Simulated assay, not measured.
Amino acid sequence: MIPVIAALLAAMVLTGVAGAAAPDPEVEALKAEADRLNGQLETLTEQYNGMRVRLDQSKRAARAAKAEAELQRRSLRQMQLRIRRLAGVSYMNGSVDESTAAFVGASDPQDLLDRASALRYFATQDAGKVRDLGIATQASAHAERTEKARTASVQRLAADIDAQKGRIESLLSTSKDRLKAAVKARDGDRRAGGEATPTATPQTPDPDGPGEASAKALAAVKAARSKLGAPYLFGRAGPKSFDSSGLTMWAYKQAKVKLPHHTGSQWTSGTQIAQDDLLPGDLVFFFADLHHVGLYIGDGEMIHAPQTGDVVRIAPIAGLPYAGAVRVA
């Protein structure tokens, strides 16, 4: 998707810096509306990402519980087999009582005592195994119910998000068209009035930043840089398209660091740090609900996947409502 909004907003920022004219109220209102709709869309994305993370956790827990229950079943079966072998055929078929069977099968009094002691031991162990199996089976059943409940919840949420997503994208498309027309009309008026068109002066981020970033953090930054220009796409984590937490997850995956595909979970995946202590590779979060994340690269800038219709790009962290930062490597 062509990043129309990115180009338009960049033009407006440059115009403001140059001081060529006062802000156009219509353009500013349309820009605010587009920002609001994009924020709603990204919030939906991270809600969906969060549900997928919790669903994956439930599935892993269910698999572990089922494996433990099966292990207990095998252990119990092995214990019961040993008991049957030790007791002997004559005892197991009920032809004589236990003491007689043990006496008949024993080669001497000490062997009789050894058999009796072993039977009591295995009987005690068997009872313990039955108890463990019951606990493991209950845990497995609970984990399976939880997995099914969360799967149903994710399916309901996905359907709801799809409906909201379609509605917001329709509104956003209309908003972009109106914004594009308003900017075109404004720029036409300014050119007619003899105003010069401002040119961009690219900023070069400090490659090292303040302090010493870790090798893994710098590897994540390098990976993110390789995706500059990749399109933003709802719920994606690369390698060709990304949402905000998908980009940071993918970048750190290339550095052999595992992050969840969810801004809220990434917020708790490392050590929270002060803004003055930022180093390249730190995760920077925005908005009160932490629904947007970027990868700090130094010099007050980050690489991030901004919003629907935009692409992975470098931007100042001051351009969004800063919420905090986390160091994961």
Rank of each mutant, 00 (worst) to 15 (best):
R60Q: 05
R36Q: 01
A213I: 01
A143L: 02
R190L: 15
L113G: 09
R36L: 04
A288R: 15
R186G: 10
Q266E: 09
D162G: 04
R313Q: 09
Q307K: 14
K216S: 01
M1V: 03
E144L: 15
M1A: 08
L259W: 01
T204P: 06
D177E: 11
A325C: 14
Q155L: 07
T197V: 13
A219N: 10
S265Q: 12
G300N: 13
V17P: 02
A139P: 02
T308N: 07
A22T: 01
A21E: 12
T43G: 12
A220K: 10
G105E: 09
V154Q: 11
D277H: 10
L133H: 07
T174V: 13
Q125P: 03
Q203I: 11
A149P: 02
V17H: 11
E70M: 14
T137D: 15
R191P: 14
A329G: 09
A106M: 09
V53D: 03
R150L: 10
G88D: 04
Y322I: 05
L278R: 10
G128T: 00
S269E: 04
Y48R: 14
A215Y: 04
G188Q: 01
A230I: 06
V17K: 11
G16H: 09
G128C: 01
P202C: 08
Q47I: 13
S90Y: 01
F234D: 14
R74G: 01
A192E: 02
V221F: 10
G128A: 04
T204Y: 11
Q57H: 08
L247G: 08
A224R: 06
K216Y: 07
I5S: 07
H291W: 02
S153V: 02
F242M: 10
G94K: 04
V284Q: 02
N38D: 14
K180P: 12
I5A: 07
G324K: 03
T197M: 13
N93M: 03
D162E: 08
S244C: 15
G105L: 04
A10M: 11
H142S: 11
V328A: 12
R77Q: 12
F287A: 08
G281Q: 11
L320H: 01
A7L: 15
T100K: 00
E68Y: 03
L112Y: 10
D160G: 13
P23C: 05
G16C: 05
V89C: 01
I317E: 10
S90P: 11
E42D: 10
A61H: 03
L41N: 06
M1Q: 02
L278C: 12
T197D: 15
S75A: 15
G298W: 06
F286C: 00
K129W: 12
E68M: 03
P306H: 00
R74P: 00
Q72N: 11
